[in-house]
């Protein structure tokens, strides 16, 4: 049984279709990254899955429960971490956790709270008001609170926004550890390195699911060719390449240029005249996930006019 199995989800707010025919299958124990530009419908899709929004069309099951009729059962088995910190800032860390423990019926409350505090290394700060915590600690608290009742599915909405790299790495280690224990995770993010830490990724743009698969599959399926241009005065080269047939992206990476296009032949042809000129070298390169996403975003914009 898939942890998430939804098809044809549609959600409209007024005239605007925010989620458009989104289907998604996530297997048990999988970590799936949910990517897409701002306003692409990631949060709305996640909210539909945890029963916070009712879809206008489409159906599906989450953890085997019907999305439309059994949202209360879904809520009990799902841990949802909101994008914005949404625990009580005027309650202490321990009080927030006690609140959650009682709501989920975790008895004895004291034991559950103490264990959670220990696991996350928050014991020394238990009496600190949640509102006075820094971003990283708030995120730890939120994660602690939403895995306290041992959910089977974790929905994380941009959990690491505004968190430093060390805390981010700790966070991901924690997620992988939980997944090894059988927890399914759907996590939305903007960070490429985080996407690469997922078993699979799904890319959504303007409410439409554009692609899904492992990182390598997504890159391969995008059908992009990349060349790395190295040498002197790359600014001029970049300017000269802009707009040439087959050249779709020109992006500086350190001392090199990444030139990306979907028409490999045209791209090679355009680059040929620069190769060898004034000590410039052109070599075939690896297409990165970021290149693929930039391409998606550019294409989506074209489609939208």
């Amino acid at each position: 049984m898939n942890a998430i199995d939804v098809t044809g989800l549609v959600k409209r707010f007024g005239e605007k279709t925010v989620v458009d025919q989104v289907s998604m299958q996530v297997g048990e124990g999988e970590i799936v990254g949910f990517l897409g530009p701002n306003g692409s419908g990631k949060t709305t899709t996640i909210r539909i899955m945890c029963g916070l929004l009712t879809p206008d069309e489409g159906e599906g099951r989450v953890l085997g429960f019907d999305l439309r009729t059994e949202s209360l059962k879904i809520k009990r088995e799902v841990g949802y971490m909101t994008q914005k910190f949404s625990f009580y800032e005027d309650l202490t860390i321990a009080e927030n956790l006690e609140f959650v423990a009682r709501l989920y019926g975790l008895f004895p409350v004291r034991t559950h709270v103490r264990r959670t505090l220990d696991d996350l290394g928050l014991t020394t700060r238990r009496n600190q008001l949640a509102g006075t915590l820094s971003g990283g600690w708030k995120q730890r608290l939120a994660l602690a609170a939403c895995i306290m009742h041992h959910p089977k599915l974790l929905l994380l909405d941009e959990p690491t926004a505004g968190v430093d790299p060390k805390a981010r790495r700790d966070f991901w280690d924690e997620i992988h550890q939980l997944a090894r224990g059988g927890l399914t995770v759907l996590v939305s993010t903007h960070y490429m390195d985080e996407a690469e830490r997922c078993h699979r990724i799904s890319y959504i743009s303007y409410g439409r699911m554009l692609t899904t698969g492992t990182v390598n599959e997504v890159i391969r399926n995008a059908g992009l060719t990349t060349f790395v241009v190295a040498g002197a005065r790359l600014n001029e080269v970049a300017a000269a390449l802009e707009g040439r047939p087959g050249v779709e992206q020109v992006a500086p990476f350190g001392a090199t240029l990444h030139v990306v296009g979907s028409d490999a032949e045209a791209l090679r042809h355009s680059l040929a005249e620069f190769d060898g000129r004034e000590g410039i070298t052109v070599t075939p390169g690896e297409t990165s996930l970021e290149d693929v996403f930039i391409q998606f975003m550019a294409d989506a914009k074209d489609n939208m006019g």
């Binding site: 945890c50 029963g51 916070l52 209360l72 809520k75 009990r76 799902v78 949802y80 909101t82 914005k84 910190f85 949404s86 625990f87 009580y88 800032e89 959650v100 709501l103 989920y104």
Partner: peptide
């Protein structure tokens, strides 16, 4: 307004 409603609704109350 404080954004805690989303969380409260996501929990089984």
């Amino acid at each position: 307004e404080r954004g805690t409603m989303e969380n409260l609704l996501a929990m089984p109350a």
